[in-house]
């Protein structure tokens, strides 16, 4: 069989195989939806608790974020076991989000030490998750994430000029635009592609 393998066959094989392995968007939006909903619920419940004058209004954050961290860890571990091929896009995403996590901890640690005000911390965190979606969008070539990232940066600046209480609503708005909308778009795209 190998003796009849012509140059035209070679070209066909290369084109076919590259087509098969080229990076398809395999992201089903799970992580964007998980974190989108958790941050939305945390920011809105924090806002409501402040309005009703509850003294531990910040409580939704540690509870929901820890829960999200555990859920993400389990989902990431399962995903890692399922994938049979690792593309350079996967590696770039992994490094991006680990870098995000490390930077987030540094910002939170700095804020907890009292070196930076919570208003600035808030703006930095919004800008940081904006960076996460902006770069992810670039890697996946998915415009809604890129626009979501840019929108988050604008919101990060806006929070510096509005009362603290309303910055929670700004967080809620940016998370809907930067995580939930692109997350649902990725999900529907993934479902459509998997039926083909």
């Amino acid at each position: 069989m190998e003796t009849t393998f012509t140059e035209q066959d070679s070209l066909r094989v290369i084109t076919e195989m590259i087509e098969n392995s080229k990076a398809k968007i395999r992201d089903n939006g799970f992580f964007y939806l998980l974190w989108g909903w958790l941050v939305l619920i945390a920011s809105l419940s924090n806002f409501i608790l402040l309005i009703i004058d509850y003294d531990k209004a910040w409580l939704p954050w540690p509870i929901l974020m820890t829960g999200g961290g555990i859920a993400s860890g389990i989902a990431g571990y399962r995903l890692g076991k399922r994938i049979k091929v690792r593309t350079f896009f996967d590696t770039a995403m992994i490094y991006l989000w680990y870098g995000f996590l490390a930077t987030l901890f540094i910002i939170l640690f700095t804020a907890a030490k009292g070196n930076v005000s919570w208003v600035v911390t808030n703006a930095l965190i919004i800008a940081l998750y904006g960076l996460g979606t902006f770069v992810s969008g670039g890697i996946l070539n998915f415009k809604p994430l890129i626009w979501g990232g840019i929108f988050s940066w604008v919101i990060a600046i806006v929070t510096l000029f509005i009362p603290d209480l309303y910055s929670l609503l700004a967080v809620a708005l940016s998370i809907v635009v930067a995580y939930l909308i692109p997350g649902y778009m990725l999900k529907s795209r993934f479902n459509k592609n998997s039926h083909v």
Partner: peptide
């Protein structure tokens, strides 16, 4: 210049790593 070996190389050239089953 052999169908299967070329298939394998074409698949691997675009990715970081791939499992045997893939």
């Amino acid at each position: 210049h052999s169908q299967l070996r070329l298939q394998v190389m074409s698949l691997l050239v675009g990715v970081e790593s791939a499992e045997f089953t893939y």
